[in-house]
Simulated scan of single mutants.
Amino acid sequence: MTTDDMPSKEQVLILHDGDLTQTVRMLAAARRIRAYHPKARVTLLCGPDFEGLLKHCVYFNAVEPTLPDLAQKGFFERRKLARASQFDVVYDLDGGDAAQKVRRALSFSSTRWIRALPEPAGRGHPLDLVAARLGEAGLGQTHYALGEAPGPEVDWIDFVAKRSRTLEPAYFGLQGPYALFTPAGDDVKPALRWPKERWASLAHQILEAGIEPTIIGGPNAREVGRYIAHVAPGARDLTGRANLVQLAGLGRKANFAFGEDVGLLHLIVATGAPAVMFSPGEDAPHFDAPRGRHPTLLMHAPTLAQISVAEAVQAMRFAGGFANAPEAA
C-alpha cells in the first residue's frame, strides 16, 4: 500500500490472492465494486502471479502485487502503512491469512471492512454466493439463484489489443476461424484428463469444419500440445508461447473453446467464447463451471475417456460455436 500523493477522492481497497480460476471470478465482483464506486480510487492489493493481466483491467486505478509481502511485515509496520493509506472501504475477496493481518492492522481505524466471501458451508456457485454477499453490503440483491449473478467479463482487453498487435490472432499465424483447446497439463493425473488421442481426433474434426484447432496452455501442457499438432497436421500448438494477456486477446475472437476445468478455460470463457468443459465425476460440476456471455456446456463422466469426440462436437453444436463456421461440422 503506497502512501505518497494520496488524492482526496474516496479510497477503495480490494484484497485478493488466488489461482487463475479464482482471479477470473474475482473480476465479476471487482466490476460491481467499480460500478458502485464510480469516482473512487480503487486499488487492488493482490499476489504477484497475475499482475501482468490485472494491471490492464479498467476496474482498478492501481494494482499492487504485494499482499504476500505485506503479510510478512511486523504488526506495527502494517498498522502504520494501513493508517497512512487512508482507505475508506476495504473489500475482502481473499479471506486468507494475509487479508486477516491487514484487517487487524485497520482494527482501530474508521475504515469500513466488507467481507465478500462465501460461507465455508455455503452451497452454490462462488459467483452467485459472492454477489449475494456484496448485496448484503448494499451492492445489489441479496440472493441469486444458480447462474443468476453476472459472470466476469474481460471485454476491457479490447483496449489493450488496440495498442499491441501481439494480442491479435494474426500475430500467431491465425488467419481464419479458429477454436481454442485448453487441455489440463501433465501435473494432473491421466485418469482425470481427456485422453490426448481424443484431443487429436477432435482436432481432425474441427479442421474438417474449416476451423483451425489451437492448443494453448503453459509449459505443463506442452506434451499434449505437441502430440495434437503432430497427429493432426494443421492444428497449431501455442503451449508455452503466449502470456495471459495474449491468450485473452485470442479468446475474444475465437469461435469456441474446449477444455478441462483449468483456469485458462475460465479466462477464455470470460472473454466471450462459447465453450465445452470436460469434467470427471458422476455429477455435472454446476458449482465449478466457467461463466461468460455465451454458454458453457458441461460434459462429465466417471472417467473422461468415456466422453467421445462425437459427443463433444454435438455439445458444441448446442453451445452455438459452429454457427459462424465456414461449413457444417
Rank of each mutant, 00 (worst) to 15 (best):
A137K: 03
Q22H: 13
L81Q: 14
P280W: 12
S107P: 00
Q22Y: 05
Q205I: 04
H294T: 12
I114E: 06
Y178R: 09
G151A: 01
T239W: 05
I211N: 01
P302L: 05
S8R: 10
L297R: 12
M316Y: 05
L180P: 00
A99E: 00
P65Y: 12
S109P: 00
A170W: 15
S85M: 12
T239L: 13
R32Y: 01
Q100L: 09
A221Q: 10
L20V: 02
D19I: 09
L44Y: 11
G18A: 14
A328N: 07
G281F: 07
T214H: 05
I206G: 00
R103E: 03
G95E: 04
V160D: 08
E119I: 14
A203C: 11
E212P: 00
R252Y: 02
I228C: 03
E64A: 02
R236M: 14
T166D: 13
L174E: 08
A170G: 12
A105R: 05
P7H: 05
E311Y: 01
A116P: 10
P302G: 02
P290M: 08
P280D: 07
G147Y: 06
K253P: 00
L167S: 06
A145M: 14
I216W: 01
F172R: 09
A319Y: 05
A137Y: 02
Q246I: 00
I157F: 11
E64Y: 06
G292P: 09
D19E: 12
P68G: 04
A35P: 01
L297D: 06
K9Q: 15
F108W: 15
V309Q: 03
L167A: 09
P290D: 08
A275S: 15
G138Y: 02
R123V: 09
R226E: 12
G185W: 01
L54W: 09
A98S: 12
V102Q: 05
E327W: 15
P302W: 06
A203M: 09
D128W: 13
R78K: 15
G225M: 12
R165Y: 13
I33H: 06
L44I: 14
E260Q: 11
A35V: 06
D186P: 01
Y144V: 00
L207K: 02
Y91F: 13
L81Y: 13
R291D: 02
L134R: 05
R291C: 01
A99M: 09
E197P: 02
G218C: 06
A328C: 13
Y36K: 08
H266V: 02
T142S: 12
